[in-house]
Design a protein around this nucleic acid. Structure first.
Length: 554
RNA sequence: GGCCUGUUGGAGAAGCGGCUUAACUCACCACCCUUUCACGGUGGCAUUCAAGGGUUCGAAUCCCUUACAGGUCACCA
């Protein structure tokens, strides 16, 4: 009779450590009462997903709020899907959103006493636990081929039974150790499965920080814990790692709820304390068929955080927006705190909605405008340069032509109680301010300027000529505007819109129309910052030059 | 299909049995701000909380059924 111990030894002859050794190596963390240890555990299979940013933001926040620890663990057990370099990229992007781990995998290095923080480097640790399980007869090698598994599946489907490897279908659960030994020695390929003692008809109570308490069927599947490539599966790695890294709260996406029975079973059977769980709602989007669906990296560009980075959104805007999804009371709080920063906000799981929110780009834009509106011209310059040097060389060269000039432009009506909110992202800055630069202005003029078709070229010419000759910039804004009204009136434009409404036949239009003509002539656009300041920055000579040029062409 | 979860305006949501003729934010619309573009302000936008049934003096709030939606059922995480 071959014993369990012999099988364990046969499979893992080199593993000498025991679970007790590991317990000593990774002792309980010495943290103050109430401190939470959280972790973000991405797979290096691509760039940061907006949903992952959401999760990591909350992990980070919970640790900060409780003076705990937030660490990152790289879950690279799926070697087939791994994308070279994406781990570093992930961490870099996290950093750009101000989510900086205290410990763990940091992209270029690992920091902390509970490592290694890369799963592929922890293979031996998992083996120690599995060897123990094997010795105890709680796990067994499974020699089923893909074909055999397929056969089982088909049979179960036909008989309308629950799918999976369990009970009578778990063929290799029931073979003798003698046969196991023989097959292993023969070189048969195998995985290791956990021998479930659970009963599908049993309901177990589970507790979740956001979903509250509910019941769920016990796991009766003999799940794979050790793959034939020598690495553990997610379920097993999660249990071992979060135990030995001493995680107190596991925060992850809702898609994991279904496998919760597996995880609590493993924790319980191993005699380890189960961490608290928080399963977060998934961020959604309306799909082509009109139904909600998960934000998809393939279909939705807002699903990748790189999209926001490339477009030059202020990173706080996305984070603040995500926080409004996370906690419904955050909006009110951040309004009260003038959009400054959110460190002092207290996050709570109970204030989280259970339903996945539709991603709202409009609201991200709103936050972005608020945030940029609050920045000083120096901050704007630094942010713009940082963005431009990475993503937008065109903008960078524009800024570098003359930084003072650039700041002057960005400072229009900025230093006041309620600053203008002209900009939401740096990605469209170039287009919005290029008219301030003569060569770029000329460039746009080549395509022709589009004036209000209400007015003939003759009228426009008449107005612009008068403005050019009679509008002075050497006065304050009030007088300047009065001056403009005066000139308008002299060529048949009412000083305000009301008068036009009252006597439509007496006027050609209102000052509004005059201002629009000037604006289009000078900026090529219908919308621009305050005209007075635009003209001041452009200076009299340049304005005149633009007017003359245009008048001669009309 | 089984199991789990959810369903309040265009979007995010508050609400936890009477104080709700349902807060607040975004979006949208209208008006005002002696005057452009903005900023700001005021007002409008759910007689009703997926539908039906029940419990109750009283329900968006408790219970049941139905509908709809999401998640999950891998040697992927």
């Amino acid at each position: 009779m071959v014993t369990n111990k012999e099988i364990a030894e046969l499979i893992f002859p080199d593993i000498k450590e025991t679970i007790e050794d590991l317990e000593r190596k990774y002792p309980k963390r010495d943290l103050p009462e109430g401190a939470e240890v959280t972790r973000f555990a991405p797979s290096p299979t691509g760039f940061l997903h907006t949903g992952s940013l959401f999760t990591s933001m909350i992990c980070h926040k919970v640790a900060r709020d409780t003076n705990g620890v937030f660490y990152v663990r790289l879950e690279d057990t799926d070697t087939k899907r791994e994308i070279e370099g994406s781990g570093e990229q992930l961490l870099k992007q996290l950093h750009l959103f101000n989510i900086v781990p205290d410990e763990g995998y940091l992209g270029d290095r690992q920091v902390g006493k509970y490592g290694p923080y890369i799963q592929s480097q922890r293979a031996d640790l998992y083996k120690v636990v599995i060897k123990h399980l094997l010795e105890e007869g709680k796990a067994y090698p499974d020699f089923a081929s893909p074909e055999e598994l397929e056969e089982i599946r088909v049979k179960q489907e036909k008989e309308k039974l629950n799918p999976g490897y369990y009970g009578e279908f778990a063929k290799y659960r029931h073979i003798s150790n003698d046969e196991r030994k023989e097959r292993i020695l023969r070189g048969d390929s195998y995985v290791i499965r956990y021998k479930s003692q659970g009963d599908h008809n049993n309901k177990i109570p589970v507790s979740d920080l956001v979903h509250g308490d509910f019941e769920i069927a016990e796991n009766d599947l003999d799940i794979v814990i050790f793959k034939s490539d020598g690495l553990p599966t997610y379920h097993f790695a999660h249990v071992c790692d979060d135990h030995f890294m001493r995680t107190t709260t596991v925060i992850r996406g809702e898609e994991w709820i279904a496998s919760l029975p597996i995880h609590v079973q493993l924790f319980k059977d191993l005699g380890w304390e189960t961490p608290k769980y928080a399963h977060l709602p998934v961020i959604m989007k309306i799909g082509e068929n009109g139904n909600k669906r998960k934000l998809s990296k393939r279909l939705d560009n807002e699903a990748a955080v790189s999209y926001f980075l490339k477009d030059g959104y202020p990173s706080e805007a996305l984070v603040m927006y995500l926080m409004t999804i996370a906690n419904s009371n955050f909006e009110e709080w951040i309004f009260e705190h003038k959009f400054e920063h959110m460190e002092e906000f207290k996050f709570s799981f109970s204030k989280m909605s259970l339903e996945g929110a539709l991603f709202d780009m409009g609201k991200v834009n709103f936050f972005a405008k608020e945030i940029l509106g609050k920045k000083t011209k120096y901050e704007i310059r630094d942010m713009a340069k940082a963005y431009a040097s990475e993503f937008n060389p065109q903008l960078l060269s524009l800024i570098e032509r003359d930084e003072e000039y650039f700041m002057e432009i960005m400072n229009i009506e900025r230093e006041k109680e309620n600053p203008r909110k002209d900009y939401e992202k740096f990605g469209d800055l170039y287009e919005k301010i290029s008219f301030f630069y003569s060569d770029l202005y000329e460039e746009t003029c080549k395509n022709g300027l589009i004036f209000n078709e209400k007015f003939s070229n003759e009228v426009i010419k008449e107005v612009l000529t008068n403005i050019k000759n009679r509008l002075s910039l050497d006065q304050d804004e009030q007088s300047w505007f009065g001056n403009m009204k005066e000139i308008g009136e002299s060529v048949g434009f009412a000083p305000n819109g009301k008068l036009v409404k009252q006597n439509p036949d007496m006027y050609r239009g209102s000052v509004g129309d005059v201002a629009e003509m000037i604006r289009i002539a000078l900026t090529t656009k219908k919308n621009s910052p305050n005209l007075y300041y635009v003209m001041k920055i452009l200076k009299k000579e340049e304005c005149d030059r633009r007017f003359d040029n245009l008048i001669s062409k009309l």
